[in-house]
Design a protein around this nucleic acid. Structure first.
Lengths: 145, 145
DNA sequence: GTAAGAGCTAAAGTTCACTTTAAGTCAAGG
DNA sequence: CCTTGACTTAAAGTGAACTTTAGCTCTTAC
């Protein structure tokens, strides 16, 4: 317990500046030594691991701060608190995986058929993906006319 | 053929400003009308679709520009050119999918066992992932001691 | 006790991928 | 011909997620 910022940075695999930044953003918390230096509870490592995982799932720090607000205010979160949090990311993660798999399959079918834009190609029948991320997410769909 | 910037933007689902930006970045090309306005060949739509797909796979515009440099200089790319390109993204895409699946499974096993940090938990035995993205990518691995 | 290295703050800087702005030009219908 | 809306440029602005800088202070090992 009572880790310095350097120790946390080292163990968590990010820079001390990132830890100060996360703190300023209200994502993590630290106590202070008599001299005013940050001192961390070991639990912060788990929290940081969660933050990084959430980022990989595609959440912004804003989203993450929001999610973390569901954790108990001033007490150390329990296993079930963490479990609830992980669970809430599951659908998002599933969507991302599905999205990637669809993209992979489309790329595959294109490599196979060599068309990439004909009406007969899988890529030209977007009914499933096109709307998922607004007008930008059209993958490999190009409608030749 | 000979689409205006507005038409391309509309069909590709992005803003005209993005098209000008891509052009400045050397990702796409346009001819000009007598009056100096951009005129696009329909093929640019496919190219844009590829660029967006590549971005979803996690490539930066720099990476993409690099990849596009393998396309024939001043002639319209053939289906097999595109196929080669898609193929080259496949491993990256596979890695991203694997990564996401691993994260999902880990979150699952955590929800199941409720530990999240004990040495007995799946999360504590990272031999596979930890090195994949440098020291930052430690997922949910926290080594309590 | 002291020197070196780790930590402190606030503010400015960085990169990525664009968007916005300002001041003007082009194209097409009536 | 004229108006309107789409287009042009260069340059500045944006937001996310940090990092760097400058000028200090703290902590620790000798």
């Amino acid at each position: 317990m009572n880790l310095s910022i350097g120790e946390v940075a080292e163990r968590a695999g990010l820079a001390p500046s990132a830890l100060r930044f996360y703190e300023k953003e209200g994502l993590i918390h630290s106590d202070r030594s008599d001299g005013g230096q940050r001192r961390y509870h070991r639990d912060v490592l788990r929290l940081i691991a969660f933050i990084r995982a959430a980022q990989r799932v595609g959440l912004t720090l804003d989203d993450i701060r929001e999610a973390l607000r569901t954790l108990p205010e001033r007490k150390v979160p329990t296993a079930s608190d963490w479990a609830r949090l992980s669970k809430s990311w599951r659908p998002l993660l599933d969507r991302r995986i599905e999205e990637m798999e669809r993209l992979r399959d489309r790329l595959d079918s294109c490599i196979g058929c060599g068309c990439l834009s004909l009406k007969t190609c899988a890529l030209s029948n977007p009914q499933d993906v096109a709307a998922s991320q607004g007008p930008g997410a059209r993958w490999l769909i190009v409608d030749d006319d």
